[in-house]
Every structure is written in C-alpha cells, then in structure tokens.
Amino acid sequence: MRALILRDLRLAFTGAGAALPVVFFLLVATLFPFAVGPDAALLARTGGGALWMAALLAALLPVERLVEPDRASGVLDQLAVRGVSEESIALAKLAAHWLSFGPPLMLAALPAAALMKLPQQVLARLELGLLAGTPGLAALSLMVAALTAGLRGTGALAGLLILPLAVPILIFGAGMIDPTGSEGAWKLLAAASLLLGGIAPFAAGAAIRAARD
C-alpha cells in the first residue's frame, strides 16, 4: 500500500502530472483580472468564486493519467495477480492523487489570492475550503478516471461526468468564502468530501475490475 502511494507520488511529481493543475490554476488567476478589469473591490468580491471554478476545472486535468496508463501497461493486472485488491489500489491512488493535487493547489492559492486582491480573511476561508474540498474533487477525478479507463478520447467525457457531480463542492466551497455566511457551509463541504472519499475506493475498485473483462 505504502509502496503504491510512493510510486504514484513519484510518477506525479517527476512527470508533469502534479504541475499541470497548479499551472492551470495560476493561469486562470492571472487572466481573470484582465477579463473583469482592475477594480479591486469587484475582484475581491468575485475572486473567491473564480478560484473555486479554477480549482474545479484543474481537477479535470489529471484524469487521463490516473488509471489508464497503469491499466494499459499491465500494472493493475500484475497487482491483481499478487492478490492486491482493486479497492486497496484505488485507495492508494486516491491518497497519492490528493497529496499531489490538494496541497500544491493550496500553495498556489496564496499567489492566486494576491492576484485577485482577496482580503486576508477571505484567503483563510478559501484555504480552509480547499483543504476540505480537494479530497472530494480528487475522489471524483479518480472515480471517473477508473470508469473511463480503456476508452478513447476520455477528456471531454470526463468533464461531462465530473462537473455535474462536483456541484455540491462548488456551492459549499464558494458559499463558505462569504464572511457573513454561516458556519454550515464548511461542515456541508466537509461532508460532501467525506461522502465522495468514502465511495471512491469501492466505485473505482469495481470499475477497475469491470474494465478487465
């Protein structure tokens, strides 16, 4: 299990895998002020939501490299021959994917918030929201990656599958940025993340098994 997590982390950080969502996220944060203009008050009011949209779309980018390369190269088969259950493989992949996706995104949120002229208080809420929400996004990406493994041209399909399911994370994540909002949003965000994270190993595991036949 630990060996699998370490292997996935090494693959993510030595290839472009982990850097791609972060670069995308920062690029959106850079472009957004150009689109709505340099009005600091407007940016501060809309910036948090825009960053959540960017995080959501950034979660789509790694989908194609999460499961398919290991399926195509026979790694999943070799693990199955060794008696490693598909659920443990999926759990290891979930842990590795979140580690290479969540914390880097939270780091990237610091310069992104500066570009958006977000007040410090909003930044703190955004970071807390990303901490609670990115596990859910990672779980969604993994499930869809396992479901679409072996299909061709999965990029667009993955977007269509992930985005509607990510609505709760977006609503509660963007909801908790509002300083006047209630504390409920953060709890609901964590709950949505927990639910997705709890389902993901079983759903992705079953999908990996089904893709073998």
């Binding site: 693959l11 195509a72 190269s73 088969d77 070799q78």
Partner: peptide, 9 residues
C-alpha cells in the same frame, strides 16, 4: 505472470 504487458515504469 509474464504477458504482453510490460508493467514497468
């Protein structure tokens, strides 16, 4: 198992 898939990084 040794089959057509190499399964090496």
């Amino acid at each position: 198992l040794a089959d057509e898939a190499l399964a090496l990084d």
